[in-house]
């Protein structure tokens, strides 16, 4: 099997004030990668107008684009409209489901969505007590279960999980530990580990670090723009070892 180059970024937080800037940085991306994954927080306020800016910046690229939303994209209760605007521009948007991207003889399976928080094993909230607490934790548990099923059903040569929230603490290093429960949940890692994946890409933790790993050994990459400090990073999934 040949190797596969995946470009990834998150937290581009686009809006009118930066229209056109990001698009310029995507020039020539087809020479570096075969697909672009965008891990949420596409906008700043989550308005449809900002969603349109995102659609303009990411549309008609020479390579397919797969995206998920982030918490900012939910802020104005326009998440559904934003998804529509992006899909109309030819961008695949995952919402707790999966897609198979055919790439010149290889099938790349991508599963995921926004994700949510709750914390990490041993230091996390549980479904106990007040209804508000239970609802918070249940939201993440249900998302994780949908991702597990989405991954399980994927028929592909390579599988990647695309999320906004983090599945592990490793990639949060640099953030205050007190806010870890709002940055991710181990349930997302557990779902990926249960079905297996080659890579787990996320954003959200602007002050975090790029590299980590799930307990089951899946490589985790925090590609938030302030972390990677590049327009995107490219990960090369190994085919026969010459990647």
């Amino acid at each position: 099997m040949r190797d596969l180059r995946i470009a990834a970024v998150a937290d581009i937080h686009l809006g009118e004030d930066v229209r056109g800037h990001y698009r310029k940085k995507l020039e020539g991306i087809e020479q570096r990668a075969e697909v672009l994954l965008v891990g949420g927080d596409l906008t700043r306020h989550g308005t449809v107008q900002e969603g349109r800016v995102v659609a303009e910046e990411l549309r008609d690229l020479p390579i397919p684009v797969v995206a998920v939303l982030g918490n900012h994209d939910y802020h104005s209760d326009a998440n559904k409209e934003i998804i529509e605007v992006l899909r109309d521009a030819g961008i695949t948007v995952l919402d707790d489901d999966s897609t198979v991207v055919p790439l010149d003889g290889l099938r790349l399976g991508v599963a995921g969505g926004k994700g949510f928080g709750g914390g990490f094993a041993g230091k996390c909230a549980s479904e106990f007590g007040e209804p508000e607490t239970k609802a918070f934790v249940r939201h993440t548990r249900e998302i994780a279960e949908r991702w597990r099923l989405a991954l399980k059903g994927l028929e592909a040569d390579h599988k990647v999980v695309l999320s906004h929230y983090s599945p592990v603490k490793d990639t949060l290093t640099g953030e205050p530990p007190e806010i870890y429960p709002f940055l991710g949940s181990y349930l997302l890692a557990e779902a990926a580990d249960a079905e297996g994946a080659d890579l787990f890409v996320h954003g959200h933790a602007h002050a975090g670090t790029e590299k980590g790993m799930t307990p089951g050994g899946i490589r985790v990459r925090n590609v938030a723009l302030p972390v990677i400090e590049h327009a995107y990073v490219v990960y090369c999934l190994n085919g026969d070892g010459d990647c």
Partner: peptide, 13 residues
């Protein structure tokens, strides 16, 4: 200001 440099070295996984 967030620096958005041109993409650099790729990582082999």
């Amino acid at each position: 200001l967030v620096e958005v440099r041109e993409p650099g070295e790729e990582e082999h996984l």
